[in-house]
Computed example of a mutant assay.
Amino acid sequence: MASIKDVARAAGVSIGTVSNVLNRPDIVSPARRSAVEAAIAELGYVRNDAARQLKAGRSQTVGCIVLDISNPFYAQLAAGAEMAAESSGIGVLTGNSGHRVERERLQLSLFEEQRVRGILLASRGGTEDLVRAIHDRGTPIILMETDEHEDSFCSVSTDDRAGGRMAVAHLLQTGRRRIAVVAAKLELRQVEARIAGARAAVDAVEGASLEIIEADDLTVLAGRAAGSAIAARPARKRPDGVFCVNDLVAAGVMQAFAFEDRIRMPEDVALIGYDDIAFSRSTIVPLSSVAQAAEMMGRTAYALLEEEVAYGDEHVHRHVTFRPELVVRRSTDPEAKDPMETDGR
């Protein structure tokens, strides 16, 4: 590969001038800048960023680890971080742990070895020892979707307990009393908090009951299997209100209700999800959901990282918690406006 020396020789300038074109082009005359840019294009020169960051002492790359990149919520979370970093010329590399502890540990170690500027982490748990060690060795880590470890880390999260309570309180307000929560990965902090909120809402209403239906995964297919199991029950033994801990599961439950047993929503069963991902507006019956500010969470996590980079040892950890928002559509309210006219907020 062409080196910076090759570029300088081809352009007839010094190595320092090439360096200035790459890093401070505003101080180079237009003629010399054009000559260097032409030489770079002709030789196919690519700058060695690893060497540059060793010299500068700080990488231009941030690592971002999420639980499931196929879930639109996490894609939006990562996109928020990318958009915030772009204006500063910082790149974001996103890793998908797939809810696997081993993969999360591998990605954390690889990002540290690459000397990234910092790491944005949505953890499934089980890597606390490594997270703390990496942070103590000097790589800033911002926790996403959790407010734990307040003494050592900045964090950004949603009040998931409030969100779970909000979802089920809405079902109860529509007259539902036999409430089911469809969930998977019950050990996840987010899922646990949403179920706790749902339980609190039910406990506050006399005559209401709560049932936990455990799905195999937090996916559409797993939701469809859970929905089929509910549909197979006699009508009098079905829940009349269902809260799914994410919208993917809710979409699967809706498919089962609509296609397998013709359960009407919300007349027979009211259904609500969580996350308010984009296609919630265009499901068979537009899906009520609890919205999280995914993009803003990603942007905020990146901002917290830059604060920690800027202030170093003088940095004071901050914890930003977003309040979720109820979005009512036709799966719980037959009078809700068409989402093509409004987003339901």
Rank of each mutant, 00 (worst) to 15 (best):
P234H: 13
L271S: 07
A226R: 00
R199Y: 08
R176M: 12
A183L: 01
H149N: 15
E214S: 07
G223I: 01
A169T: 15
A169R: 14
D160R: 09
V242M: 01
A270Y: 00
G273H: 01
A258P: 04
A180N: 04
G252V: 03
E206D: 14
P286N: 05
A162P: 00
E211D: 13
V156K: 00
L248C: 02
T158C: 12
S155W: 00
D160A: 06
A250T: 09
E145P: 03
L218C: 05
A226P: 02
A232K: 09
R177A: 07
A196F: 04
A235F: 13
A226E: 10
A278M: 12
L271Y: 10
G252H: 02
V290P: 04
T146C: 01
P286Q: 03
D276N: 08
L218A: 08
L210W: 07
R177C: 06
I230Y: 03
F243V: 03
A200G: 06
L186S: 06
E148W: 12
L287E: 02
G197H: 05
L171E: 00
V220I: 15
D268L: 07
R238E: 04
T146S: 15
D240P: 02
L287Q: 05
R194P: 01
R161V: 11
M265K: 00
V191C: 02
E260C: 05
Q255N: 13
I263A: 03
Q173V: 03
C154D: 12
R262D: 15
L143V: 07
V245M: 10
D203T: 15
A251M: 14
F257D: 14
G273V: 09
C244M: 05
V249D: 00
D217K: 04
V168H: 06
G207Q: 05
A201G: 13
A229F: 01
L221M: 14
D261L: 08
Q190V: 15
V181I: 14
S280D: 07
D268E: 10
S209F: 09
A226V: 06
V249F: 03
D159L: 10
P234Y: 11
H149R: 15
E150L: 12
R178P: 05
L221W: 08
V290Y: 04
A196W: 03
I179E: 00
S282K: 10
A200E: 11
I272C: 04
T146R: 04
F279I: 14
A278K: 06
M166Y: 10
R199Q: 14
Q255H: 13
S282Q: 13
P234R: 15
G241P: 02
V182M: 02
M265S: 13
